[in-house]
């Protein structure tokens, strides 16, 4: 049985005249991993802060686990863990001390806290460094410590803001593995990122943010279909013709980009190789190469945001 854990309707946030988030609707089911994907400044963090009740929305409503984070913030925050963008800890305290401070704030008893902290640190593989000052930690270790805090508090929902930003590939992979483990244990996870591959590997569903709105919500496969995973790119090499001119109005061609001399990248809705070959020959040029490949998701993704930027 699926139940809705996070439900946002028409979330809007204005900072003065600037519109940071312009009417976001989002719903997350229990046990799901949902990725908020978008460039920096698209409104992901603001949306997250509004979901948590840390920022008051200008308009719209949020329900987390059936509760309004503005009316019952303590109840919501007890069950929802938040890992902020570049999480900070008290550098002069050890990992264990940092966690026992938050455990005390969360209202855990001393014995309970000790047990849970040890278990959580074990799980994120920080046991050996548990009594070192956090000031000596690497970025990846801090992020893992942040995850340990969520584990220790036994949150039902975890909201992670840019959990992998600034991490090296290995640390990123470790963190993603950890997120997957959490998800398997039944935690509902909402994470934001501007990196497609991060979201692609762990998320069941993706919400694309652009200019404070959600442009698309769906699975990775749906995203691929929707934003151009279905698109074709033809690599054309030819001499003695200006293909950009010749094929401008050809049917099925979306765009032509001159790459270097005698080399073009043709983007098309379908396989347009026969048409292109004919055009080149008709134009009196000599065709040297025609290469078809389908657009990769990350290319499609960056193209998607480029289009958005052009529209704006």
């Amino acid at each position: 049985m699926s139940t809705t854990v996070i439900e946002a309707k028409g979330l809007t946030k204005r900072y003065g005249a600037a519109l940071a988030v312009a009417g976001v609707d989002l719903s997350v089911e229990a046990g799901e991993v949902v990725g908020l994907l978008g460039p920096n400044g698209a409104g992901k963090t603001t949306t997250i802060l509004m979901l948590l009740g840390l920022t008051e929305p200008s308009e719209g409503q949020v329900l987390i686990l059936g509760k309004d984070p503005l009316r019952e913030p303590l109840e919501v925050k007890r069950q929802v863990g938040y890992l902020p963008d570049t999480v900070g800890f008290y550098d002069n305290m050890s990992a264990r001390e940092n966690l026992s401070y938050t455990a005390e704030l969360a209202g855990l008893s001393r014995d309970q806290a000790r047990e849970r902290i040890a278990a959580a640190l074990d799980k994120v593989r920080l046991r050996d460094a548990a009594d070192r000052q956090v000031g000596t930690y690497s970025r990846g270790m801090r992020q893992r410590l942040g995850i340990a805090e969520l584990l220790m508090r036994d949150c039902r929902v975890a909201i992670l803001d840019e959990p992998t930003s600034g991490l090296d590939p290995q640390a990123t992979q470790e963190l993603l593995d950890l997120i997957q483990t959490l998800s398997r244990e039944g935690m509902t996870i909402l994470l934001s990122s501007h990196m497609l591959d991060v979201v692609q590997t762990v998320c069941h569903r993706i919400a694309l943010f652009r200019n404070g709105k959600i442009g698309f919500v769906g699975t990775v496969e749906e995203l691929a279909d929707r934003i151009g995973g279905g698109a074709f790119v033809v690599d054309v090499e030819a001499d003695g013709i200006d293909l950009a001119q010749a094929a401008r109005f050809a049917e099925g061609v979306k765009s032509i980009a001159a790459d270097r001399d005698g080399h073009w990248l043709v983007e098309a809705e379908r396989d347009v190789r026969p048409e292109l070959a004919r055009l080149v020959v008709q134009g009196g040029g000599s065709l040297r190469n025609l290469d078809l490949h389908r657009a990769r998701l990350d290319q499609a993704y960056s193209r998607y945001f480029k289009e958005v930027a052009h529209d704006a």
Partner: peptide, 8 residues
């Protein structure tokens, strides 16, 4: 932000 995300 981490401190304010605690149930206080």
């Amino acid at each position: 932000s981490r401190l304010l995300a605690q149930p206080i």
